[in-house]
């Protein structure tokens, strides 16, 4: 019975740790498949985390908080889109600036909200949570956002490979010149992809401040945006590998806490490295086939598009 409890606890913790990576990662996957490299994921997640938190505390409704967070992420992505797609600024530099801006701006608007306690989404939905048996308690920690993150990989996979819109998205990311010659509106499609990426990053950030932690503190995303970005690249832009990578990262993060709890005689710094190391090693091993990489990598990634007649 005890083992089952631990197994359930680890499973639930893994899913919860993977959720922000899945949400932000799949948003970025769509963005990059359209040929745009947005390095501002971390910044957009932070904006989502702070706006989502403030919105939830102010209105009392986590649903409104989550929606506001998605809007905040999309708004920041819109800034990125205007700069890189309309004004053709360099995508790498603009993305980095977006992250720096997000870190600073979220800290600024969140400064008077630090330390305010908040019910997690799960406890909000299930008020009698603490009276349930431990396994039920654990399972109830899987709130609707976690279940959404479970669905997202399947939806995105189906969208990319089975729908016409997904085909157009891949085509634009593969060669914007050819797509343009065929009469597709490259810039409009890229704007939509960038906005989707922003909204998903905002949602991922809000999940951290509303359910995972749940509280607001400065820079609380703590590099998860960068991990999501790295996962997208290491997964060679394949939804299945991205989902796998996110889960693996979540699992090793949790396992590392368990190992520390078991009194394993390893430096905590080495243990803290483990999730990164394990994820990168596994994804590099499964994606080292050069032909496959060439097939999946969006060939136009990061290249600006200008429709010259």
């Amino acid at each position: 019975m005890h083992e089952v409890e631990i197994a359930v606890a680890i499973l639930v913790a893994t899913m919860r740790a993977a959720t922000p990576l899945v949400l932000a990662g799949f948003g970025e996957l769509i963005t990059e498949r359209s040929g745009v490299l947005n390095l501002g994921v971390e910044g957009m997640m932070l904006m989502g985390a702070s706006i989502g938190f403030i919105g939830t505390v102010a209105t009392g409704s986590p649903v409104i908080g989550l929606l506001l967070a998605m809007l905040a992420g999309a708004a920041l992505a819109l800034v990125f889109g205007v700069l890189t797609l309309s004004l053709m600024a360099n995508q790498v530099a603009t993305g980095l600036a977006l992250t720096i801006f997000g870190v600073g701006f979220s800290a600024l608007i969140g400064v008077s909200w630090i330390g305010i306690p908040l019910q997690g989404i799960a406890t909000g939905i299930w008020p009698n949570l603490s009276t349930q048996p431990p396994i039920i308690q654990q399972l109830m920690l899987l709130d609707p956002v976690v279940w959404l993150a479970v669905l997202v990989p399947f939806i995105v996979h189906r969208f990319i490979y089975r729908t016409r819109a997904g085909l157009v998205l891949r085509a634009v990311g593969e060669s914007h010149d050819v797509a343009h010659a065929l009469g597709y509106s490259v810039i409009r499609i890229r704007y939509l992809a960038v906005l989707f990426g922003g909204a998903m990053s905002g949602l991922a950030g809000a999940y951290l401040s509303l359910a995972y932690t749940p509280m607001w503190s400065e820079n609380m995303v703590a590099g998860r945006g960068w991990i999501a970005l790295a996962l997208v690249v290491f997964s060679t832009w394949k939804p299945a590998y991205l989902a796998l990578g996110s889960l693996l990262f979540g699992f090793v993060t949790i396992a590392q806490f368990q190992a520390a709890g078991l009194g394993l005689a390893l430096s905590p710094h080495l243990l803290a490295m483990l999730p990164y190391l394990a994820t990168i090693v596994v994804l590099v091993l499964i994606s080292r086939d050069a032909t496959r990489l060439k097939l999946n990598a969006p060939a136009a990634l990061g290249r600006p598009f200008h429709a010259s007649a």
């Binding site: 085909l167 157009v168 891949r170 085509a171 593969e174 060669s175 050819v178 065929l182 060439k294 097939l295």
Partner: peptide, 13 residues
């Protein structure tokens, strides 16, 4: 043509 897509996908586009 898009290199990474199949013939049918290219034609569909």
């Amino acid at each position: 043509l898009f290199e990474s897509l199949t013939v049918a996908e290219n034609i569909a586009l």
